[in-house]
Amino acid sequence: MLIIAGWLRVSPQGRDAYVAECVPIVEAAHRADGCLDFAITADSVRPDRVNVYERWESDELLHRFRDSGPEGAQQDRILAAEVHKYRISGVEAP
């Protein structure tokens, strides 16, 4: 299992519009084979931060979906980013 998690920084004035524009991406991910969870959300404290969380069954299924990543104008609005892929070897109750 893979987890993709991190944050994007966008202008505070444009953050909510950015998140709203990501709704079709989130909907597409939820329909994609191998997607266990996918969220792009506004941070509740930092007005310029967008949180990213994804959970996938495998690299193959992640990459199949990833080939449709952010395009031009949407990508250009990202001022900074820190998003990483984590490989999970086991799952247990908290």
Score class of each variant (00 low, 15 high):
Met1Cys: 12
Leu2Glu: 02
Ile3Gln: 15
Ile4Ser: 05
Ile4Ala: 09
Gly6Ile: 02
Trp7His: 13
Trp7Asp: 15
Leu8Thr: 01
Leu8Lys: 08
Arg9Trp: 01
Arg9Thr: 11
Val10Leu: 02
Val10Gly: 02
Val10Thr: 04
Ser11Arg: 13
Ser11Thr: 10
Ser11Trp: 02
Ser11Asn: 04
Pro12Trp: 01
Gly14His: 06
Gly14Trp: 05
Gly14Met: 10
Gly14Ala: 03
Arg15Leu: 04
Asp16His: 08
Tyr18Thr: 02
Tyr18Ser: 04
Val19Gln: 12
Ala20Lys: 14
Ala20Met: 10
Ala20Gly: 08
Glu21Pro: 03
Glu21His: 15
Cys22Asn: 10
Val23Arg: 08
Ile25Pro: 01
Ile25Arg: 07
Val26Arg: 00
Glu27Ala: 12
Ala28Gln: 05
Ala28Pro: 01
Ala29Pro: 07
His30Val: 13
Asp33Cys: 00
Asp33Tyr: 07
Gly34His: 08
Cys35Glu: 02
Leu36Val: 01
Ala39Lys: 06
Ala39Gln: 13
Ala39Val: 14
Ile40Trp: 07
Ile40Gln: 01
Ala42Met: 04
Ala42Asn: 05
Ala42Tyr: 09
Ser44Pro: 09
Ser44Ile: 02
Ser44Trp: 04
Arg46Val: 11
Arg46Ile: 13
Pro47Trp: 03
Asp48Pro: 03
Arg49Trp: 14
Arg49Asp: 10
Val50Cys: 05
Val50Glu: 08
Asn51Gln: 12
Val52Leu: 11
Val52Trp: 04
Val52Ala: 07
Tyr53Arg: 05
Glu54Thr: 04
Glu54Asp: 05
Glu54Lys: 06
Glu54Ser: 01
Arg55His: 12
Arg55Glu: 09
Trp56Thr: 00
Trp56Met: 02
Glu57Asp: 07
Glu57Cys: 06
Ser58Leu: 12
Asp59Glu: 13
Glu60Thr: 13
His63Glu: 11
Arg64Leu: 10
Phe65His: 15
Asp67Gln: 15
Ser68Glu: 15
Ser68Ile: 10
Gly69Arg: 07
Pro70Tyr: 11
Glu71Ser: 12
Ala73Pro: 11
Ala73Lys: 12
Gln74Gly: 06
Gln74Tyr: 02
Gln75Ser: 09
Arg77Ser: 08
Ile78Phe: 07
Ile78Glu: 06
Ile78Val: 12
Leu79Asp: 03
Leu79Val: 03
Ala80Val: 05
His84Met: 14
Lys85Phe: 14
Lys85Asn: 01
Lys85Arg: 15
Lys85Leu: 13
Tyr86Leu: 12
Tyr86Met: 09
Tyr86Arg: 08
Arg87Tyr: 06
Ser89Ala: 14
Gly90Met: 06
Gly90Trp: 04
Glu92Phe: 14
Glu92Pro: 04
Ala93Phe: 15
Ala93Glu: 12
Ala93Thr: 10
Pro94Phe: 15
Pro94Thr: 05
